[in-house]
Write a protein that binds this DNA or RNA. Structure first.
Length: 434
RNA sequence: GCCCCUGUCGUCUAGCCUGGUCUAGGACACCGCCCUUUCAAGGCGGCGACACGGGUUCAAAUCCCGUCGGGGGCGCCA
């Protein structure tokens, strides 16, 4: 056994509560969490709230909630940097005492020794070498008494006994600076791994245009946490050709940090949508029910008098046809309101023809006398009429679908007729003549 | 400007370390066909890539150099 394998892995996620949880941060958290859970180590949280003006409890609560939503749990209590200002100062004073730093006003600044090469053996990128000539002297404690990011980061990672730092590529240039601090504090640096950033599909920075940047936005849009997490994981680690759709449990089992990609990936909303559709399809209607209800409510539908049983049947009918939870409301709005919009092209094609209206008339008259409004019975009537009039069943089906839903697409006609109910079906079919 | 990371289908990637098994495999998207009551789902098929230029070698997607492209960083922000 190698020594590294018997020391417990400790990783951390260090959000700054100055905004919502960004997709990129969520991915970073996810990989750290995966690594900890895979190795049986610890996943710790550190709140980087040194900027008092910009940090807020509200953001922190949101971030923690989003993490939980994604299925990420953490060990121990989160460490708050705002409560450790004395520690940072003390450590900076130690370095100052060794004459490796100087004061400028109230600030304590670290002297960077020139002409050295700092080598980092990055877990993801391999060797990275930087010359200290390219690094300016580094502020440790600012004039206002607060620590700088790089300094607090080192003090805390050492204090928390972090063994591996997995973070975004944008921190590569921070790493040699931090290593200098580890040296000055006579500490052994942890292992570093820098994962490439996520880009929008046009190669630019991920932004609103690409579908949103915050976890919250995807949640609202009707993405399932397991789909989002699965997709984010795929953006940086390939679990194998047969494992693209994988649960967090499987990911924990299969995850191998040495297989992480060193190439920046573009965020592809299409693939996320596909994955989400896969998860929706496979999820039980029972589990989908509360989520769908919430979406319908937010969409503003009148849900009074609508039973869970009714929604469940709707979900059964539509869950293989939607890519996001929100889409059910768009596809099935006509179940909740009578003033649904009519597809213009479909209307021209199916409802503006007299023979089609005739068929609907005959169909509705027979439905009127139907006692048991089951889809089997409805279908029987429809097919009988088609046979009698020497038509294809489709000639009756399409105009009828349009009459009751305003749409040219959707779940099987007879099933949706049964669910919508005799009264509304008949009213809408008769409405065609007006 | 300087420093760092990076470059296989439109996108995510397998392969690269340990050259030949690669006329480069899979997934999403797209297109076509089948199924069918439309849309999905499902099945089958198609389109489609080693950034470019030099080396090294009997042989390079794989190794080396250069060019070009993409990204990040250079704060008393985090």
């Amino acid at each position: 056994m190698f020594i590294q394998e018997i020391i417990m892995v400790k990783v951390r996620f260090a959000p700054s509560p100055t905004g919502f949880l960004h997709l990129g941060s969520a991915r970073t958290a996810l990989f750290n969490w995966l690594y900890a859970r895979h190795t049986g180590g610890k996943f710790l949280l550190r709140i980087e709230d040194t900027d008092k003006a910009r940090s807020s409890k509200k953001f922190l609560d949101e971030i923690l909630e989003d993490l939980k939503w994604m299925g990420i749990d953490w060990d121990d209590e989160p460490l708050h940097q705002s409560q450790r200002f004395e520690v940072y100062r003390e450590k900076a004073e130690q370095i100052l005492a060794k004459e490796k730093a100087y004061k400028e006003g109230e600030a304590i600044i670290f002297k960077v020794e020139k002409g050295r090469t700092i080598e980092v053996n990055d877990i993801i990128h391999g060797k990275i070498a930087v010359n200290t000539n390219d690094i300016k002297d580094q502020v440790m404690i600012k004039s206002d008494g607060s620590p700088t990011y790089n300094f607090a980061c080192v003090v805390d990672d050492a204090y928390m006994e972090i063994t591996h730092i997995l973070r975004g590529d944008d921190h590569i240039s921070n790493t040699p600076k931090q290593i200098l601090f580890y040296e000055a504090l006579e500490l052994t640096p942890p292992k570093f791994g820098h994962m490439p950033l996520i880009l929008g599909q046009d190669g630019a920075k991920l932004s609103k245009r690409h579908g949103g940047v915050s976890v919250e936005e995807y949640k609202r849009e009707g993405f399932l946490p397991e789909a989002l997490a699965n997709y984010l994981i795929l953006l940086g680690w390939f679990p194998g050709e047969d494992h693209e759709v994988l649960s967090m449990d499987e990911a924990v089992k299969l995850f191998d940090i040495s297989d992480m990609s060193d190439v920046q990936a573009k965020f592809d909303i299409q693939k996320l949508r596909w994955l989400n559709g896969e998860y929706i399809m496979k999820k039980t209607t029972e589990k989908l029910l509360p989520l769908i209800k919430e979406q319908l409510l937010t969409a503003g539908f009148d849900m009074s008098g609508v039973t869970d049983d009714y929604i469940s049947k709707l979900v059964d009918l539509y869950k293989i046809r939607i890519k996001t939870l929100r889409e059910l409301g768009e596809l099935a709005d006509w179940f909740f309101k009578d003033d649904f919009t009519m597809d213009e092209e479909g209307k021209r094609k199916y409802l503006d023809k007299e023979e089609n209206k005739d068929n609907i008339r005959i169909f509705v008259d027979r439905l009127d006398g139907l006692e048991d409004f089951s889809h089997e019975n409805i279908e029987k009537i429809c097919r009988d009429i088609a046979e009698e009039r020497e038509l294809k069943a489709a000639d009756i089906i399409h105009p009828t679908r349009l009459a009751i839903s305003g749409k040219t697409k959707g779940a099987g006609l007879f099933e949706v007729m049964e669910l919508l109910g005799k009264e509304k079906v008949i009213k809408r079919m008769r409405g065609v003549d007006k």
